[in-house]
Design a protein around this nucleic acid. Structure first.
Length: 549
RNA sequence: GCCCCCGUAGCUCAGUGGAUAGAGCAACGGCCUUCUAAUCCGUUGGUCGCGCGUUCGAAUCGCGCCGGGGGCACCA
């Protein structure tokens, strides 16, 4: 029995009790069932009596008393105890708890999925770095977290498009092009240009593609460097991301918004809609009505569209492509965008809730315990590839995904390379590999899954393991709802821990000459169920689940 | 000055208003001739930044401070 099933059963009991006139309360949408910290408090506990007793005009224990009578009648419930101010502590029959092992194996890779987000079309935009340099640590974090989030949404039935928005025109790209040109000429990088070995590398590759490029007039030459350099850089970025296990469905070119007068047309319509106002020769969006610090210029006084005009057009474009929810992941240095993006949606007469901006905090690079300032200009950036070279894709993705995006994180490359054992990804992967070793040994010892007797799973470590496995679907759903993939990582760490403890306490393959019994066979089911959940969890994070280590 | 995030064990961090606040690492001490010792067991370690409030109940919610990080363009 999973906590969700128990929760549903408790809800049904509440409904029956109300129907029977035992008390009068508004039925809650969900009854929270949690695993108590102390095992003395049973397998599962609910505080529903504490929450509803006031409404029922009863004291909580009295309410709990009424409800417990009904809970005790439920199939699979062994005992119900009332504790403290009115908690209901529920203990399941071993068989009811153990049945979960078989249902997980039967569900296979579907265990942990749901249809909660079915029918929702989500556009998830992340990374979106302009092609002026390699993906740095911050972008790498969003790649890991964003892709995990996409997987989470998909696991809940949503239709997800991973999207990368880029701009290959404008001042930043111009600086990039001039830096390439300078490098090719053997001159130092311009004052406001980019530095670093990758500039020399790209410049050299451009020269190979177009050996006569420096013979052009400077302006034409720089433009040519822009075209070829951006292509090469973007190719490198896509390859890095692909090798990192992150592939985008759509690479959206900012420039395409301005083709055929799309943005201009939108702005003209907005001018007449009353959502823009004219002041000092510029057209402004009244974003202050949506929590922005100040109103934002949409059309500059010289008539050119401001940056936000592109955002408005992009939003309309996404909506026309049929997305119900447009999620944009940005670094903390862009948190000021939230209000104006919502304002843009509202100005268009659309629902601001169709835009969701996820702000993630910065990644700091540490060296010997001291923060290192990363600078593209100085070429002291640590890139996605640097991180992968240092620790591998699995450890990199896992490390970045296991922290809340609300936290600043410090990455110490030396620490990660020197002591990879410290990384919890190995703890989880090792547990998964161990389930395979156990399975192999079980097969060799003649243990198969021809029998399953859930009541055999009565060891305390088996109760713990079953409980952790049972919480997995709820954790996944919660991680998706909160947009917090780190919850999945933290939970599979818990599962790995309970599995290791179970392994230590209970044998699956018989010892020596002992006969194979249904106990062994049943435990093999539990072993395989754990294997499935660990694989599913690692899969949600885009981390491999090795069969041997 | 205003806005966003953070402050929990020596360190890195978990913790949708619930019971005695957790994990990993670090430190110290144990368990390998039997399914993988990257595992497991034990010990040490806390004014949950501070104060006030809401609540039967606050690390969690509200307000005010303090400290750290990030941001406040007719740039993109």
């Amino acid at each position: 029995m999973t906590p969700e099933e128990l929760s549903a059963a408790i809800s049904a009991c509440l409904k029956d009790a109300v129907a029977a006139g035992e008390f009068d309360v508004e039925l809650p949408s969900e009854v929270r069932v949690e695993r108590p910290r102390s095992r003395e408090h049973g397998d599962w506990a609910t505080n529903i009596a504490l929450q509803l007793s006031k409404q029922a005009k009863m004291n909580p224990r009295e309410f709990a008393q009424l409800l417990s009578g009904r809970l005790e009648q439920l199939d699979g419930v062994k005992t119900v105890a009332i504790a403290g101010p009115g908690f209901l502590n529920i203990t399941l029959d071993a068989a009811a708890a153990g049945e979960l092992a078989r249902s997980i194996v039967d569900a296979g890779s579907g265990y942990g999925t749901s249809g909660l987000m079915a029918g929702t079309k989500i556009n998830l935009e992340f990374v979106s770095a302009n092609p002026t340099g390699p993906i740095h640590l911050g972008g790498t974090r969003w790649a890991a977290v964003g892709d995990a989030l996409a997987r989470l949404f998909q696991s809940q039935g949503a239709e997800v498009t991973r999207e990368y928005y880029f701009n290959d025109h404008g001042a930043q790209v111009e600086r990039f092009a001039r830096s390439l040109w300078a490098s090719a000429k053997g001159e130092p990088s311009p004052e406001d240009g980019y530095g670093g070995a990758y500039i020399d590398d790209i410049a050299a590759r451009v020269l190979v593609l177009d050996p006569a490029i420096l013979d052009l007039e400077q302006e034409d030459s720089v433009e040519r460097f822009r075209q070829l350099g951006v292509d090469l850089m973007f190719g490198d970025i896509k390859k890095s991301l692909h090798d990192f296990g992150v592939d985008f469905d759509v690479y959206f070119h900012e420039h395409s918004l301005f083709q055929d007068g799309f943005v201009e047309g939108l702005l003209e319509k907005l001018k007449t809609s009353g959502n823009l106002f004219l002041e000092d020769g510029a057209w402004w969006l009244r974003s202050t009505e949506f929590g922005d610090d100040k109103d934002r210029v949409v059309i500059k006084s010289d008539g050119a569209p401001a940056y936000i005009a592109g955002d408005i057009g992009y939003f309309v474009n996404k909506r026309r492509r049929g997305f119900d929810l447009n999620i944009i992941m940005l670094g903390a240095d862009h948190h000021g965008y939230v209000a104006r993006l919502k304002a843009a949606a509202a100005a268009l007469g659309d629902d601001p809730d169709t835009v969701e901006v996820l702000i993630g905090q910065m990644v700091n690079l540490m060296k010997d315990g001291v923060p290192v300032r990363m600078s593209k200009r100085a070429g002291t950036v640590v890139t996605l590839e640097d991180l992968v070279d240092a620790v591998g894709v699995d450890a990199a993705r896992y490390t970045l995904a296991r922290f809340s995006a609300d936290s600043n994180i410090d990455i110490d490359l030396d620490l990660l390379t020197r002591r990879t054992n410290d990384n919890p990804v190995f703890y989880v992967q090792y547990a998964h590999a161990r389930t395979h070793a156990v399975e192999r040994n079980a097969a060799a010892a003649g243990v198969d899954t021809s029998a399953f007797d859930a009541s055999e799973l009565s060891h305390p470590t088996e109760g713990e393991l079953l409980a952790a496995l049972g919480q997995f679907p709820g954790m996944v759903a919660q991680a998706a709802a909160f947009r917090e993939p780190h919850r999945v990582a933290r939970h599979i760490e818990v599962i790995a821990g309970t599995y290791h403890r179970w392994y230590d306490a209970c044998r699956i393959a018989p010892l020596g000459d002992e006969p194979v019994t249904d106990l062994h066979r049943t435990r093999l089911w539990l072993n395989n169920a754990t294997q499935q959940v660990l694989a599913n969890g690692l899969g949600l994070l885009g981390v491999s689940a090795p069969e041997r280590m």
